[in-house]
Design a protein around this nucleic acid. Structure first.
Lengths: 187, 187
DNA sequence: GGGTTATGTTTACAGCATAAACATTAAAGG
DNA sequence: CCTTTAATGTTTATGCTGTAAACATAACCC
């Protein structure tokens, strides 16, 4: 690979370098200039492919959402796709957050207004919708309630563990995401 | 109040100015220099009272935790202190987050390692423990599980609403924090 | 092959956290 | 009361940041 003035596919290279940086660097310390340095390009070259730093971060978040959905899909599949699959996608959600803290935070929290994360159209979102519908038998209001409750539980658990408020413990994840004690209508 | 070289109580003034700034400014845009400017003092004067910016933020987070606990205490009280009080503290938690987004984020998410938020010893934490214990009748393992589940639900709901993933809707809060559909042991 | 356009670079600017040296004032001791 | 000292301010400087503007190079199109 000869060094030429033009890079070839700088955009993808920047996204890859950004994802790599997010594996080792707190989100607040992610620097556009550092990513450019990693790729071996001037800082301002980034602006030929992204209007500003935020746009690059949005691209990274998009890649992250895909990874998250894929992890959840795989978890549901290996759970057999039955009623146990809902819990499996939830556990996968939390584990993904713990495995990729900065990326997870970027997806949900670290894109200042407007938060155009497009999570809404992701595979992850579709899985949530689908599993909740299966669990409620189809009633739309019940489905929506369950969806939001389930999302809130896993998201809250993930954030509290990421932020050091709860131990990032696999046993605790299983205990919290337990269909026997969650969402059961009393009596 | 005459302008003197020495300020008088710069530390408190900085904390107050910081809290004021957090009401109108995204957490990432909070600037030590701007807070100093607001107080009418040089940027480096801050370093006589806080070793670095992070320490100032920790002080702000501490003040925020107190406010949160107080809001929850008031909510529990006006709910009559009975079994309905648990839900009331949960709703107060989410409403506090929506009313003070930057402050809430600072408390939980925006203090890079080590996250010494000391939430653990706050009134908010004690209320959570107390209400969960009351709801389970005292069994320690059950209490801990309920505590974590309840915290996860309200925290997740708060974060998802703050981050624009769910509408910041009072009706939705009530729907999610509903003892009839949450945590009920099946059958 | 020459002009246009895409995609790089260099340079420059303002704002940031913070370190170092210096100034002023309040408090303490004789 | 007067001096010494410590606390608490200011000024200045450094290296980082995101990004705008002007310029350079190379790829593509007629």
């Amino acid at each position: 690979m000869v060094r030429t003035y033009h890079h070839g596919d700088l955009r993808s290279a920047l996204v890859e370098a950004g994802l790599r940086a997010l594996e080792t660097t707190e989100i607040g310390d992610i620097s556009l200039r550092q990513i450019a340095r990693d790729v071996g390009v001037s800082a301002t070259a980034v602006y030929r492919h992204f209007p500003d730093k935020r746009a690059l971060l949005v691209a990274l978040a998009g890649a992250g959402i895909e990874k998250l959905g894929e992890a959840q899909r795989a978890a549901a599949e290996s759970a057999g796709g039955g009623p146990g699959a809902f819990g499996a996608t939830g556990r996968a959600y939390v584990r993904f957050a713990l495995a990729h803290p900065a990326l997870f935070r970027l997806i949900f929290t670290h894109l200042p207004p407007p938060g155009d994360t497009v999570f809404g159209e992701s595979l992850a979102a579709r899985l949530l919708q689908e599993k909740a519908a299966a669990a409620t038998g189809g009633d739309p209001a019940e489905t929506r309630r369950l969806m939001v409750q389930a999302w809130a539980v896993v998201h809250g658990l993930a954030m509290l563990m990421l932020d050091g408020q709860l131990p990032p413990d696999d046993a605790l994840i299983d205990q919290v995401i337990d269909p026997a004690t969650l969402f059961g209508r009393r009596r």
